[in-house]
Amino acid sequence: MTVLPKDIPGDSLKVTVGTANGKPGDTVTVPVTFADVAKMKNVGTCNFYLGYDASLLEVVSVDAGPIVKNAAVNFSSSASNGTISFLFLDNTITDELITADGVFANIKFKLKSVTAKTTTPVTFKDGGAFGDGTMSKIASVTKTNGSVTIDP
């Protein structure tokens, strides 16, 4: 049996954390987006972790974005102690894959008090994996961190 590389060099799934701005007490939304989904033969499963400074940001909610089908079954998240974990699994293993680019999740943060303008990162942590529509590992994932700026 011969195994051929399935990824064209330079191609990767792009996962990007967005940015937001606000004043202390505001609730802002930071999107997590996927790009080049079709090039990577869709997404059938993924789990990953984001870190944030809990002294500056309070997670209000984490909701599935419009590219997630049947989110009540296929999407899960949790947030505590400065870490947000995400889990997606197409429970049907074929019919509810992520097949389009767009917003995977929206994180709502309540901004805490600061004395001066502060930009705090929302960054990928170690761990996690992504699988394509056949549940094979997506070897190349380009992750881009985001941030939230609090301006009193």
Rank of each mutant, 00 (worst) to 15 (best):
T2S: 14
L4W: 13
L4K: 10
L4C: 12
K6Q: 11
D7Y: 11
I8N: 11
D11I: 12
L13Q: 09
V15E: 07
V15S: 08
T16L: 11
T16N: 09
G18V: 09
T19H: 11
A20V: 11
N21I: 12
N21L: 11
G22V: 13
K23A: 12
P24W: 14
P24V: 11
D26I: 13
V30P: 02
P31C: 11
P31W: 12
V32S: 10
T33E: 10
A35M: 09
A35E: 09
D36K: 13
D36F: 14
V37C: 08
K39E: 14
K39P: 10
M40R: 10
K41V: 11
V43E: 02
G44R: 01
C46I: 01
N47A: 01
N47P: 00
Y49G: 00
Y49M: 01
L50Q: 08
G51V: 09
Y52D: 04
Y52F: 14
D53F: 10
D53I: 14
A54Y: 08
A54D: 11
S55I: 13
L57P: 02
V59L: 12
V59D: 07
V60S: 11
V60I: 09
S61A: 12
S61T: 09
S61M: 14
S61V: 09
V62P: 08
V62R: 07
A64K: 06
A64F: 07
G65V: 04
G65I: 04
P66M: 14
P66L: 12
P66I: 11
P66F: 13
I67V: 11
V68F: 08
V68W: 01
V68D: 10
K69V: 14
A71R: 10
A72R: 14
V73G: 02
N74I: 01
N74D: 06
F75K: 02
F75E: 01
F75L: 12
S77G: 09
A79I: 15
A79R: 15
S80M: 15
G82R: 15
I84E: 14
S85L: 00
F86R: 00
F86C: 03
L87M: 03
L89W: 03
L89E: 00
D90Q: 00
D90G: 04
D90F: 02
D90R: 02
D90V: 05
N91F: 15
T92C: 01
T92L: 02
T92G: 03
I93C: 02
D95R: 01
D95C: 02
E96Q: 14
L97T: 05
I98S: 03
I98L: 05
I98D: 02
T99W: 05
A100F: 04
D101H: 08
D101S: 14
D101V: 06
V103D: 06
V103E: 00
F104C: 02
F104W: 05
I107G: 00
I107W: 00
K108M: 07
F109I: 02
K110H: 03
K110I: 04
K110C: 04
L111D: 00
L111P: 05
S113Q: 05
V114R: 12
A116E: 07
A116V: 06
K117A: 03
K117Q: 05
K117L: 04
T118Q: 05
T119L: 08
T120R: 14
P121K: 11
P121I: 05
P121M: 04
P121F: 03
V122K: 00
V122Y: 02
V122M: 07
F124S: 04
F124C: 03
K125I: 03
D126V: 15
D126T: 15
G127K: 15
G127V: 03
A129Q: 00
F130V: 02
G131P: 01
G131K: 02
G131D: 03
D132S: 07
D132A: 05
G133F: 06
T134C: 14
T134R: 14
S136Q: 02
A139W: 15
A139C: 04
A139L: 07
S140I: 15
S140Q: 07
T142A: 08
K143N: 03
K143M: 04
T144K: 09
T144F: 04
G146E: 01
S147A: 06
S147K: 05
V148D: 01
T149P: 15
T149S: 15
I150A: 14
D151C: 15
